[in-house]
Design a protein around this nucleic acid. Structure first.
Length: 507
RNA sequence: GCGACCGUAGUCCAGCGGUUAGGAUUUUGGCCUUCCAAGCCAACGACCCGGGUUCAAAUCCCGGCGGUCGCACCA
């Protein structure tokens, strides 16, 4: 974990073995884009499934899949058009960049300068003769930075569209349908796993900041007069490490250690629903292989928060290069539904039993999948005896099983292929390999993170038993072929441990 | 976007004005092989792109693209 070159190591293995690599390589590459290979797509899919298992398995958590491209009006209503662009001004001498609207606000005391528009910002910057705050040199004319991808909808280009920078807006747009499908009952949630695009100024660090990535988001709608989360008790004892807004303001960086329940009772998390999903988030990230002391929740200060958020906690994990945000937990209030109610001139309110109408409030957990992916790889990595091993959780590993003949003669190869076909047929994800020596194959299997290797040897031909070899301990057990599928199923459903899979073999 | 450093087989490195561009590993074919990258033989495979300087450029200069780090940004 302290290895400063761990990122480079993981990147090299990822390229060599097919987890992921930079996109458009043969055309010189393009920063901010990665392509997942065979091992990568399988690991990614398993992480998505794990997320769904943690977040979407209750009643009234409804999944949707909406378009990536939206007409401009959607992001005008949501506030993204004005909030996803900004004017940046660079110093002519020291080269530092500053947000032009903030410079004007600091100098003049004006508020919300951003909303005045580009011409006003340029004019005010010149009128007040604003200089570089660092070296007092003149500033260049501010340039517009728009971090949403813009496109034309329709072959003749009649309508301006944008690629979504978050999936959330499609949940708000479809709130009314979701509400009907949830039998007009609150609380309910819409969830979505899909691609989003952000035209980052400066993508960095492979998977951790890309211009296109899979997001896993959930919008939980609730009545602010009935903010209790009925599921809170399921995670209330979950221990978290928390850095609050107040602590940040006082430059206090040592996290509080407390349970979800305690954080709610002390008022450190505004909504029970946020607390619930932070508890689930803790479990999910732990499931990916990140220990407690490598996780924390860090509050956003008001100027760091998104335009829609009343409180945000980032879920961060510690990697070899420092802390990385893997999830955001935002209390979005009724901001979004109200925005679209106005923008689309469509009623987004809900009727209480007492006959009053209200706009539901929203709590949102949001996960950037690439970051979970990299986190899982880095935390699973071990260098041992000159080998690379990924100790991925057994339900995350790209392949479940490797199948090897001990040697490729005397019918062992044919027998192995039979076993391989049989295991594939009953649903295991397997990899057959008869190249080189068996030791070499074990090493390759470890590097792919495959938890178990089934080896067919001479004894198999006599008594219909095989060996199963454990990636983590490098020990083996021997199991009759008739029991193999059943035992493996128990193992992969976590109802059996490796030692339960057969009779131990003395090394 | 700015600054520093960097870009050589699939991967990781060496070479830093004239080399048949070298090594490790991987891969492929063969021999061998009864459990952890064994050994032997053979083969495939590279100087990011474009200009310039020079008799001569992987090597020096400029630009582009990409990467790492720092600043800024990060919904």
């Amino acid at each position: 974990m302290t290895d400063p070159n761990l990122y480079e190591t993981i990147t090299a293995i990822a390229k060599r073995r097919g987890y992921y690599w930079p996109s458009y390589e043969i055309y010189g590459g393009l920063s901010g884009y990665v392509t997942y290979g065979d091992l990568g797509t399988k690991l990614k899919r398993n992480i998505e499934r794990t997320w769904r298992n943690h977040f979407t398995r209750q009643q009234n958590i409804l999944e949707i899949e909406a378009p990536i491209i939206s007409p401009e009006i959607v992001f005008e209503a949501s506030g993204h058009i004005s909030n996803f662009k900004e004017y940046s001004s660079e110093c002519t001498k020291c080269g530092h960049s500053f947000r032009a609207d903030h410079l004007i606000e600091d100098k003049t005391g004006l508020e919300n300068v951003e909303a005045m528009g580009g011409d006003a910002i340029k004019r005010l910057l010149a009128e007040h003769k604003i200089k570089c705050p660092r070296c007092s040199s003149p500033l260049k004319e501010p340039t517009l930075i728009l971090t949403m991808f813009k496109t034309q909808i329709g072959a003749t280009g009649g309508l301006t569209g944008y690629a979504r920078p978050e999936a959330a807006q499609s949940m708000f747009i479809n709130f009314k349908r979701g509400y009907q499908h949830a039998r007009e009952k609150l609380p309910f949630a819409l969830a979505q796993v899909g691609k989003v695009m952000r035209n980052e100024i400066s993508p960095r660090r492979g998977l951790t900041r890309t211009r296109e990535f899979t997001i896993m988001e959930l919008e939980l709608f609730f009545d602010p007069q009935q903010p209790e989360c009925p599921w809170l008790n399921e995670v209330e004892d979950e221990e978290i490490r928390l850095i609050t807004e107040e602590m940040l303001a006082n430059d206090e960086r040592t996290p509080l250690e407390l349970t979800i329940r305690e954080a709610v009772e002390k008022g450190l998390i505004l909504q029970e629903w946020s607390a619930y999903y932070m508890g689930v988030s803790k479990r999910f990230i732990t499931h990916l292989g990140v220990p407690h002391d490598r996780q924390r929740f860090r509050a956003h200060l008001p100027d760091e928060r998104a335009h829609y958020s009343a409180q945000t906690y980032d879920h961060e994990v510690q990697l070899s290069h420092g802390w990385l945000e893997v999830a955001g937990h935002a209390y979005r209030t009724d901001y979004d539904l109200k925005s679209h109610q106005k923008g689309a001139d469509t009623d987004m309110t809900v009727l209480r039993e007492d006959g009053t109408r209200f706009t539901p409030h929203v709590v949102e957990p949001s996960f950037g999948l690439g970051r979970q992916f990299y986190t899982a790889l880095e935390h699973a990595y071990e260098r041992k005896d000159n080998r690379n091993i990924f100790h991925l959780p057994r339900d995350l590993a790209p392949y479940q099983l490797s199948i090897f003949p001990l040697v490729t003669k005397d019918g062992l190869k044919e027998k192995s292929q039979e076993v391989h076909a049989a295991l594939e047929k009953v649903g295991f994800t397997t990899f057959y390999d008869d190249r080189g020596s068996v030791g070499r194959r074990y090493a390759r299997s470890d590097e792919a993170g495959t938890p178990l290797a089934v080896t067919i040897d001479y004894a198999t031909l006599d008594d219909e038993t095989v060996t199963i070899r454990d990636r983590d301990s490098w020990t083996q057990v021997r199991t009759p072929l008739v029991d193999l599928a059943t035992n493996l199923r128990s193992y992969f459903s976590y109802t059996a441990q490796f030692e339960d899979l057969g009779q131990a073999i003395e090394p």
